[in-house]
Simulated assay, not measured.
Amino acid sequence: MRPGTGDPHPRLALANPAAGRLIERPFPYGPTRWTELWLACVMALFGACLLAGGDTFALPSYRVIKAFASEDATGAAAAVVAAARLAALWHDGRIRAAPLVRVAGCAGGFLFYTALAVGFALAAPPFPTGLIYGALAAAELHASSRAARDAVLSDSLGVRRRRRNREQPAA
């Protein structure tokens, strides 16, 4: 408990309570979830391009990725994960805040974009394609940190609630 305040949760800005409240409030919908929304849309479009037909994996830059998964499997995985993320973002914004689901979606997106970046980088040239997907992976990391912050502030795991219940005397 913070001395003299009765507040069991230490604030980030102790000297200025107003600043502390601003720092500790959840991010507004737009800046946090729009990044996740666009990253999910990029993933959906990537999956749709692979599923649309043609022999995309015949290109030399896809040879490393092709060694691990077929074009149809990669496209289907991208489309399914993107659809799940879009549904989770809709659920989080319209029905109930679910930042842990957003963290899981960002983790999946990070793994997907990292795999693409590594695959394209190992098949270099063209190396810049790997850099593009590396930048998307970095954006997923940034989005996951914001979703994790929302999860902590909304007490998604119930840690603060359990601590408060433990600290309150039994009635």
Rank of each mutant, 00 (worst) to 15 (best):
L111S: 11
G109K: 00
A151K: 05
F27Y: 11
A88K: 01
A77F: 15
G134E: 00
R166A: 13
V159N: 05
A40Y: 07
V152S: 02
L37R: 10
C41S: 10
F120Y: 12
A138W: 05
V80E: 04
L122K: 03
D155K: 11
T56C: 03
V159R: 11
T129H: 06
A115H: 06
T5R: 09
A44M: 12
A69V: 15
A52T: 13
K66L: 02
F110Q: 08
P169V: 09
A84V: 15
G158I: 14
F46T: 06
P28A: 11
Y133W: 15
A151P: 05
Y62H: 10
E71Q: 14
P128T: 01
C41F: 08
A143I: 05
A83T: 15
E140T: 09
R94Y: 00
G30C: 12
G53D: 04
A82E: 07
A83L: 12
E36C: 12
P60R: 08
L157S: 08
A137V: 07
D150G: 00
A98D: 08
A148W: 05
R25S: 10
V103K: 01
G93D: 02
G4A: 12
V159L: 14
R102H: 06
V81L: 12
F110D: 01
Y29E: 10
S70R: 03
